[in-house]
Amino acid sequence: MTSCHIAEEHIQKVAIFGGTHGNELTGVFLVKHWLENGAEIQRTGLEVKPFITNPRAVKKCTRYIDCDLNRIFDLENLGKKMSEDLPYEVRRAQEINHLFGPKDSEDSYDIIFDLHNTTSNMGCTLILEDSRNNFLIQMFHYIKTSLAPLPCYVYLIEHPSLKYATTRSIAKYPVGIEVGPQPQGVLRADILDQMRKMIKHALDFIHHFNEGKEFPPCAIEVYKIIEKVDYPRDENGEIAAIIHPNLQDQDWKPLHPGDPMFLTLDGKTIPLGGDCTVYPVFVNEAAYYEKKEAFAKTTKLTLNAKSIRCCLH
């Protein structure tokens, strides 16, 4: 018999989150649709729960009410004593943790798909938090293969000092899905179709896995975050240069030392320094102006996964 890495157990509980950011409308629209008619997301033997994560922000069509829901799922915020004085999103995070967690427990949901849009030209993107997770690498390989020839990129946010504390991190297997470009507060049919297909293929993978299909060893190309880059700023902290036209919409493309990065209003080009080629992502993302992030630098690498098969009882 072929030796293989056996994944822990079959997958039982899956959640699909929309509206973690209330103005990213593809996930909101799909989740609302699936709450009314969820036939397309159901798979035999699998509990799939669509869920609106930040209903107040969705109602106002804004990213958040008090603070970013997708950055506060750490033990400090989840452990705060519940009171009306807490920011709305912290209270909501505790409610979500109660419903789908608790985080880092045996009772937490197996998989959470968190649906997002970006204003950046990132196409279909899967966000991975753990480079050693054979199950998710296999799932992402399946999704990428199923979507081809449509490109699907994998963004690895594993980093020693950049801690995200994402909404989906309460699950055993957290999956971020990011599709763009799409303006905030807008629905685009092409973007919706791409996100819908990503979810379909992900659920198909889980179904095949649960039925005992063995997935042979595989490898995927990923883009691992190195650092986030702020806009150049003046002495008052105001933005002093904008994304250069040569960099705009060039997510995932190589940016070499000396290539144009920013452009000042008086026409001066600010190039990339250093001696390493990087791959920019979230270029000129609207939501990241407040976070002082013009783009993120990534490096390209390959992740390998062992063969996996479900432990059938």
Rank of each mutant, 00 (worst) to 15 (best):
F100T: 06
E238R: 10
I111N: 01
L86D: 13
K306C: 07
T2L: 13
K81Q: 14
H5M: 08
K13Q: 07
E235A: 05
N70F: 06
N23I: 00
L69Q: 07
V283S: 02
I52T: 06
I16V: 07
E293P: 15
R196L: 02
K228P: 14
T264Y: 05
D266A: 09
G273N: 10
E227L: 00
I157A: 15
D74W: 09
L162D: 13
L265W: 09
S161G: 11
I220Q: 04
Y109L: 05
N134W: 10
L247R: 03
P232D: 02
P232R: 01
Q182F: 01
L30W: 01
H98Q: 11
H159G: 15
R168K: 08
I6M: 15
A57K: 04
L272A: 13
K224I: 03
E76R: 07
I270F: 05
K197S: 15
K163S: 15
K172S: 06
V31L: 05
Q138Y: 02
A286V: 11
A39T: 11
I137E: 01
K300H: 05
S169V: 05
V14E: 01
M139H: 00
L156H: 06
P151K: 15
I270P: 02
L192K: 02
L187D: 00
Y279K: 00
E95I: 12
H313A: 13
L247N: 01
I41W: 00
H10Q: 14
S108N: 13
G79N: 12
P149S: 04
L156S: 05
V31Y: 00
D234C: 09
E235W: 07
Q94R: 07
A286N: 06
T299P: 00
T118W: 01
A241K: 02
D234N: 14
G27H: 00
P181N: 02
S105F: 07
V58D: 05
A165G: 13
G267I: 03
L162W: 10
V283T: 05
V175L: 03
P217M: 06
W34S: 01
A287Y: 10
E106V: 11
G22K: 10
K163C: 13
D251V: 01
I308W: 03
K292R: 14
I137G: 01
Q138T: 01
S307H: 10
H313P: 11
E95L: 12
R168V: 14
E47F: 06
G185C: 09
T269M: 15
V28H: 12
I199E: 01
Y164K: 15
F73D: 11
K103Q: 13
H207F: 15
T62A: 13
T119L: 01
F140Y: 09
L86K: 11
L25S: 14
G22M: 09
Y223C: 04
G273C: 07
A93T: 06
H159A: 10
E89N: 05
N246W: 09
E76K: 10
N117A: 05
M261F: 00
D259E: 08
N134C: 08
D85N: 14
G180E: 00
I41G: 03
N304L: 15
C218S: 04
I225N: 09
S307P: 11
E178K: 08
H5Q: 08
K213P: 03
D230T: 14
I112D: 02
K59I: 15
H5A: 09
P245K: 04
A305P: 02
Q138K: 00
T62D: 10
F17S: 03
N134K: 05
I112S: 05
P271I: 10
Y173H: 12
I65M: 14
N37H: 11
N77I: 08
F135E: 01
S307Y: 06
M122N: 08
T62I: 13
N133H: 05
N77S: 12
Y173N: 13
E36A: 08
A165I: 13
T125L: 05
A171L: 03
C152D: 00
N284D: 02
D190F: 02
G237R: 05
L78T: 12
L301Y: 08
M82T: 12
G101V: 05
E95D: 15
G176S: 11
C218K: 03
I170M: 14
K306N: 07
H33L: 08
E76F: 12
I308A: 04
S169C: 14
F17K: 04
G123Q: 06
G22P: 11
D275I: 06
R168N: 13
V90G: 12
D114P: 00
R91C: 09
P245V: 01
M195Q: 13
S307D: 05
P102I: 06
T302V: 13
A7N: 15
M82I: 15
P87I: 07
I191F: 04
I52L: 14
A296G: 07
K197H: 12
E238S: 14
Y164C: 13
R63M: 10
E89M: 04
G185Y: 00
I16W: 01
N117M: 03
D114Y: 06
R71F: 09
V175D: 00
F73A: 09
K292T: 07
Q12T: 14
L126I: 05
E9M: 13
D104V: 08
I41T: 05
I199Y: 01
Y231C: 02
L30F: 01
G79T: 13
K253S: 14
L46T: 07
I52S: 01
P217C: 06
K60R: 13
Y288L: 10
N236I: 08
V222T: 08
N246G: 09
T118D: 03
S105I: 14
E84A: 09
E227P: 01
Y64R: 08
Q182K: 03
K306S: 15
D259L: 03
K49A: 07
